[in-house]
Design a protein around this nucleic acid. Structure first.
Lengths: 237, 237
DNA sequence: GTATAGTTGATTGCATACAATTTAGCCACC
DNA sequence: GGTGGCTAAATTGTATGCAATCAACTATAC
C-alpha cells in the first residue's frame, strides 16, 4: 500500500518534538544538546538523535559544531533581519497564489484559524506564538504549492526562533488584528492591498522584536523536555 | 583555533560529490542509490552514506522512501514550475540587495565569471550548466546575506535537477547573453531593469525546458560515479 | 494457465562498540 | 598568582552487527 510511505519514523517524531520545544521556548537559544542525554530522554540510541539534530541543523534551528556538539541556534541580529526580509518576499508570492486559488472554503478556513487565535489571545504565551506562526503556514498550504509551503515553514520557524531571542514577552498579541485585515483583503480579492498588509504585518512583527539580547548562558537544562519526550516514547505524533 | 570549525567532514565531501554528480547529470532522476554500493564506492561505511543521503533529501535532490531506499528525485512538471516561480521571486531580492551593495569590484567579479562562461560556451555540457548555475550563486553571494545565499543555492540546484529531467540537451547556451544584460543593468544601477531582466531570464530558462519526459528506467548504474568517489577517498574537496 | 501463499535474498532501520577529539582539572614551573 | 602543558573524563565521529522490512521467485492449488 502507498499509505505506508507516510508512516512517520521515530526520527521524524523526535525532530518534531525538538522543533516544537525550540519554538515554544522550552529550549532557548544557546542551550547545549548532548546526544547522550537526549537519547536517554527520548528512549532511543544516539543514532536517531544524531539524525534529528542534523535535520534541525539543516533547517537552521540548531547549530552543529564539529566535535563540539549541537546547540540551539543563536542567530545574529543581522541574520534575523535577513530572515524577515526573505520571508516578506516569499509570502508575497503566497498572497498572489492564494488569491489565484480563491474559493469560499479558503476564507472559511482562515477565519476558523483566526477564531482560534482570538480564543487563545490571553492564554499561555507558547500557544499564541504557535498559532500566530501557524496562520502563515495555513496560508502557504492554501497557496497550493508544496515547494512554497516547505520554504515558508522553514523560514517561518527560523523567524520564530529569532523572536525568542530578541523579542520581549507579549509582543505577539497585536498581530491578530493584522491577520484579520489580511483575511478581509483576500476575501475581497484585493491582491495589492493584501500584499501591502502582509508586508506591513511582517515588518511590524520584526520591529516589535529586535531589541535587547539576554545572553543567557549555554547551560544544559533538558528537564523541561520531558513532556515532549514522553510523547515520542509513547509513539504519539 | 576557530578555523577548525570549518574543516569539512567526510559527510560534507560525500554530499558535495553526490550533489555535483546529480547536477552534472551523471546521476539521472530516478536512479536508485543503495547505501551499500555507495559506501563501497566511496570507501566509507553506510553510516556516512546515510547521513549524506538524508542531507540531500532535505535539499530536495533525492527522495527517501521508507524501507525502500533513496533515488534521485524526479520532480513533477508542476513542482518544476513552482520551483522556478519561487526562484524568480527570491532572486528579485538578490538583485535589490546587490544594487544596494554595489561597488566596482562587484561588477568586475561578475564580468570575470561571465568570461568563464563565454570560454566554456562550446565546451562539454556539464561544465556550461554548472557555470550558468554558479552565476546566480555568485550574485547571491554578492548580495551579502548568508541566509539568502543558502536558499538561492538550494533552489537553484533543485531547478538544475528539473532541467536535467525536462530540458533537452543544449538548451542552456543562450543564457549567456542574458547574463551579460543583467550585469550591464546592475552596472548602471538600474534596479528596475535588472529585476525585469532577471525575471525574463528565469522565465526563459524555464520555458526552454519543460518539454518531454524521457522516462528512463530506474536502473542502478553507479560506475559513472567513480571520478567523484575518487576525490572523496583521496580526501579532496 | 492463473493466482495465491510461502520462502529466500537483498536492503534498510536501529543499536552498540570502538576510535578520535575536545574539555577540564591538576600539578609543575615560571 | 598566573601560565603552560599533561592526564583523565566526557563527547562526538565512524564502523559494524543484528533485526525488521520489502521484493522477487518458486511452488502448489485450483
Amino acid at each position: 500500500m502507498k499509505a505506508s510511505d507516510k508512516v512517520k519514523h521515530r526520527t521524524d517524531m523526535i525532530s518534531s518534538a525538538l522543533r516544537s520545544a525550540i519554538l515554544e521556548r522550552v529550549l532557548m537559544p544557546g542551550m547545549k544538546l548532548p546526544e547522550d542525554s537526549l537519547g536517554e530522554r527520548f528512549g532511543v540510541s544516539r543514532t536517531l538523535i544524531r539524525q534529528s539534530l542534523e535535520r534541525l541543523a539543516a533547517e537552521g534551528l540548531i547549530e552543529l559544531r564539529r566535535n563540539k556538539g549541537a546547540m540551539v541556534a543563536k542567530p545574529s541580529l543581522e541574520e534575523a533581519r535577513d530572515l524577515f526580509e526573505l520571508r516578506t518576499q516569499i509570502e508575497d508570492l503566497v498572497i498572489s497564489r492564494v488569491i489565484k486559488n480563491m474559493t469560499p472554503d479558503i476564507i472559511a478556513e482562515l477565519e476558523g484559524h483566526l477564531a482560534k487565535e482570538v480564543e487563545a489571545e490571553h492564554a499561555a504565551e507558547p500557544k499564541s506564538i504557535r498559532l500566530a506562526t501557524e496562520f502563515h503556514i495555513l496560508l502557504a498550504k492554501l497557496a497550493g504549492s508544496p515547494v512554497l509551503l516547505r520554504y515558508v515553514e522553514e523560514i517561518g520557524y527560523r523567524c520564530g526562533l529569532t523572536l525568542s531571542l530578541y523579542a520581549r514577552p507579549h509582543s505577539t498579541d497585536c498581530g491578530i488584528a493584522e491577520h484579520r485585515q489580511i483575511i478581509e483583503a483576500l476575501a475581497t480579492g484585493d491582491e495589492d492591498t493584501a500584499r501591502k498588509l502582509m508586508r506591513h504585518h511582517l515588518n511590524a512583527v520584526a520591529d516589535r522584536a529586535l531589541f535587547t539580547t539576554d545572553e543567557g548562558g549555554p547551560l544544559v537544562y533538558l528537564d523541561a523536555l520531558e513532556p515532549y519526550a514522553k510523547k515520542v516514547r509513547d509513539g504519539g505524533a
